[in-house]
């Protein structure tokens, strides 16, 4: 029961994060959507480790990897935002439409 609640909450967080990552125009808000998806993944990992893995330490290790991914995503993401702003004065995704060509 507990695992189902946790996993449903994780699914909801992932869905909200996917909505944000697809819909937001601002780079920073887009990154918040990505963070929210990772939040859902972290919650699901904690739930599975606690209720389905019997306390094997590899599950906690996976959660730590997810947290490292969060830090990497944020650092590189903000560096890319700063670099794009320096080049194009762009802070929304529509401003870099030439990347489509």
């Amino acid at each position: 029961m507990t695992l189902i609640i946790v996993l449903l909450a994780a699914s909801a967080l992932f869905g909200i994060g996917l909505y944000g990552a697809l819909s937001q125009q601002s780079f920073v808000m887009l990154m918040m959507g990505l963070e929210l998806m990772l939040n859902g993944a972290l919650l699901a990992i904690i739930g599975f480790w606690s209720r389905g893995l019997g306390g094997m330490p590899e599950g906690q290790l996976l959660a730590i990897i997810v947290m490292a991914v969060m830090a990497i995503e944020m650092a590189i993401g903000f560096a890319l935002v700063v670099a794009l702003y320096r080049k194009r004065q762009a802070d929304v995704t529509e401003a870099i439409g030439t990347l489509k060509r």
Partner: peptide
């Protein structure tokens, strides 16, 4: 989640 057979092996 709802349709899977979730494991039940909590931390002791």
């Amino acid at each position: 989640v709802l349709l899977s057979d979730l494991p039940d092996s909590p931390v002791a």
